[in-house]
């Protein structure tokens, strides 16, 4: 018996190392409790929609320096931002790869000539939520099909690398042990379908980078600085892993 248990531990790794089969993928929305699902299903009880409302107001308001509002260049958010979040992170015309947050910050500095709002600020999360809503229900596009294969590989290497004092990789929890209980918490598969999210644990809106930072400190690894290219690589790999799943942004999560 003891021998068999030991073999089972060894065998678990090759059996699962390929990750999650497409038909077995479940978003955080699907695996969270019915109360949180109900909160997200009704736009009037989803707190992230307050962020959307604030973001839409910001979209249409010009900065004090006379430069255009977002709408001054992009027009109607419903038309021009449709499907944009589903294809982010994305390579820009100048070759740089940016997440949606970085893209909005670039607009703020280059076209609005204002100091970009910092990552995790309510204003930036609100704008991101307003943009992300325009991809809700759409399939997440595979970054590898948009010339980001190298970033996908770098992100996957990071995803599979053991990290921190606890010596755990992302894959060991989210590929190999999803659905199991870590203390009182059910381990999700870790698909970024709903960002920015209103997380009940935070009692606030937050980004994917904030969520990833939580996992890093959870395994007692030092997180990368905000906006670091490693975070973007990891996001790109996670979007590749979730490609074809429907966006449910802006989501509620426990």
């Amino acid at each position: 018996m003891r021998f068999f248990i030991f073999l089972a531990l060894i065998a678990a790794v090759p059996a699962l190392a390929q990750g999650i089969a497409p038909q077995d993928r479940r978003s955080g929305f699907e695996t969270m409790g019915p109360e949180a699902q109900a909160m997200q299903r009704d736009d009037f009880s989803n707190p992230a929609m307050l962020g959307v409302a604030a973001g839409e107001a910001a979209w249409n308001s010009a900065p004090a320096n006379g430069k255009p509002a977002c709408s001054g260049c992009h027009g109607d958010i419903n038309a021009t931002m449709r499907g944009v979040d589903a294809r982010y992170p994305a390579r820009q015309a100048n070759g740089a790869v940016m997440d949606l947050t970085g893209r909005i910050q670039t607009c703020q500095s280059q076209h609005q000539a204002i100091t970009p709002e910092p990552r995790e600020s309510a204003g930036l999360l609100a704008l991101q939520a307003a943009v992300a809503l325009r991809s809700r229900g759409m399939q997440i596009e595979a970054p590898a099909s948009r010339g980001l294969s190298e970033a996908v590989s770098r992100g996957e290497a990071l995803y599979r690398q053991r990290l921190g004092q606890l010596n755990l990789s992302c894959a060991q929890c989210h590929d190999d042990h999803w659905g199991r209980s870590l203390g009182g918490t059910r381990i999700p598969q870790g698909h970024p379908t709903g960002y920015p999210i209103f997380r009940l644990e935070w009692q606030a809106m937050g980004s994917l980078q904030r969520r990833l930072r939580n996992c890093f400190t959870g395994v007692r690894a030092e997180p990368f600085p905000a906006g670091a290219s490693e975070w973007i690589d990891l996001e790109i790999y996670l979007r590749q892993r979730a490609a074809g799943m429907a966006s449910d942004a802006p989501g509620v999560r426990p």
Partner: peptide, 8 residues
């Protein structure tokens, strides 16, 4: 900035 939503 405070945002509120009212549904009637």
């Amino acid at each position: 900035m405070t945002t509120a939503m009212i549904l009637v």
